[in-house]
Amino acid sequence: MATGGRRGAAAAPLLVAVAALLLGAAGHLYPGEVCPGMDIRNNLTRLHELENCSVIEGHLQILLMFKTRPEDFRDLSFPKLIMITDYLLLFRVYGLESLKDLFPNLTVIRGSRLFFNYALVIFEMVHLKELGLYNLMNITRGSVRIEKNNELCYLATIDWSRILDSVEDNYIVLNKDDNEECGDICPGTAKGKTNCPATVINGQFVERCWTHSHCQKVCPTICKSHGCTAEGLCCHSECLGNCSQPDDPTKCVACRNFYLDGRCVETCPPPYYHFQDWRCVNFSFCQDLHHKCKNSRRQGCHQYVIHNNKCIPECPSGYTMNSSNLLCTPCLGPCPKVCHLLEGEKTIDSVTSAQELRGCTVINGSLIINIRGGNNLAAELEANLGLIEEISGYLKIRRSYALVSLSFFRKLRLIRGETLEIGNYSFYALDNQNLRQLWDWSKHNLTITQGKLFFHYNPKLCLSEIHKMEEVSGTKGRQERNDIALKTNGDQASCENELLKFSYIRTSFDKI
């Protein structure tokens, strides 16, 4: 039985969820670079991206490699990797027998973001014989899940209580170790020597080791999670996991709180800001991140802002960003909400898709409305799209047979046209069989910064309504002859009103 693990408890099935942008060198404390989270699957090609990484700022997932063999891993080693800020997950990587050479110096898994409450997941690794993470000293947050690894031993010899604050939620089941077939031998045991430290858990006094050649490092209890030197002297209180010299914040392997210019500090002093819960960055760093993602459509890219001495992905609820200094300031009234469309555009074809934009005031991208039916549609669209004030790209209304009016965009005031449909149009209306009105132009103002209007096959939309939009939106004169079809717009509506004058002759039985 794995020490510190839980057996036999019912657990939810383990679901495996399925960018080499360097964020800056980590400095003297770390020998390499800070790398983003990685999802490495199918083959070993991307694994080489770990070569210079000291910190993975995010998670590391290595999974679904069915053609790899043990010899493929023999020359692979990433000794610079010290810390993973989120979680480490391995799933069905064939041929991998140990992690001792792959990650010989991995010391800390912070667990800032977890995989279903777990910071370390080893699942269905069919050839893994031992973990071998002999320098792993601290899992700051989260638990361990090690399950269905039929060859995995050296679990009962690990004292997880020396690595985690609590072992109650560890789930370590259905491994070879369960069948008591392992016969784990710690260093020196074969020669009758006791080389590794022994600890007591559940009444068992057991030597602690990761492999037959690597003991588990056990520091004096007084050192807590700070770690200790090879001689057993406690590291500085700002260290986490390990250090090369005692009581020196510049000799830590990793930091308990924050890293700044080669030393570990309790908090980031001005003019620095907390970033990702582990390091200090200056304003320029946060500003660069903001600008890199301002026009990016890459998933996970955030326009970072500053709030409460932190550089964070977005302002919290009730705050909006001051564009001059990136500071989050309290909103006066309802907060603006910028919604970034991942692929640059979004099609609204149902109430469900409209709900995804609920509360958005600025759309960074283009909207395509293609709704053919739905219950209580006008009210639903207004509830979900009615706060949109600005669209950076274009607005396209296409084959939306259920629409009679666009009044559900009740606050839309600006279409920038930074991206144009077919390279020309910022407003595009095609084949809307029941569209009769755009907006009530006596109450609604709309500016279209650039781009043209396109109207074709809107049989109940009168040309007068379209011409009014040209005047109000500032697009009059931009359109070419064929942009607004004269014969297919309003051709099934009563669009022309003329005053009919009647004269009559009164007659009676005795007068003409």
Rank of each mutant, 00 (worst) to 15 (best):
S161F: 12
P334V: 15
I146F: 10
T199V: 12
L332W: 11
C35K: 00
V108G: 01
T189N: 08
I201Y: 09
G262H: 02
C215M: 15
F258N: 02
I185R: 05
P36W: 05
P220R: 05
T329A: 06
R256N: 11
D177R: 12
L131S: 04
V218Q: 12
C315S: 07
G183W: 11
N322E: 00
H274N: 15
N195C: 09
Q245F: 04
C268Q: 00
L155K: 10
T140M: 09
H290M: 12
M38L: 07
F91H: 05
R298W: 13
E33R: 12
V167H: 07
Q61V: 08
N242C: 12
Q204V: 10
T194D: 06
E130C: 02
L174F: 06
N149H: 01
D261E: 02
C215R: 15
V265H: 12
Q61L: 10
P36L: 09
D261Y: 15
I82H: 07
T329I: 14
L131Q: 02
L44V: 12
E124S: 10
A230Q: 15
F66G: 09
C280P: 00
R41P: 13
S225G: 07
V305W: 04
Q299I: 07
H48Y: 05
S98L: 01
E180L: 12
E238K: 04
K251C: 09
A156L: 04
C335L: 06
S112F: 04
G318T: 09
F116Q: 02
D261P: 04
R41A: 13
S225F: 13
R162M: 09
L60N: 00
L96T: 01
D248T: 03
N170C: 07
Y87F: 03
T229N: 15
G111E: 00
F115Y: 13
P313R: 05
G227V: 12
D101S: 14
E168L: 08
L128F: 13
L102V: 11
P269I: 08
K193Q: 15
L64T: 11
G192L: 11
D247H: 15
C209I: 01
C219Y: 07
V265S: 05
L88I: 15
E314K: 09
L131R: 01
N42F: 11
N52S: 06
L44W: 11
M125L: 02
P316N: 10
Y87A: 02
S112R: 08
I163F: 11
V173H: 15
E238S: 08
E97T: 08
L164M: 13
F103L: 04
D86I: 02
G203H: 09
E147A: 14
N308P: 02
F285D: 08
C255H: 00
I84R: 00
C280V: 00
E151T: 02
R141Q: 15
Y171S: 04
Y30V: 05
D165F: 13
G192R: 06
M38C: 02
H302G: 14
E238T: 12
L114N: 04
C331N: 13
G188R: 07
E97R: 13
L81G: 00
C234S: 04
D39P: 01
P334D: 04
T140I: 09
C219S: 03
S324A: 15
L60I: 05
N202L: 06
L60Q: 00
H48N: 15
G333D: 11
I201Q: 11
F66K: 13
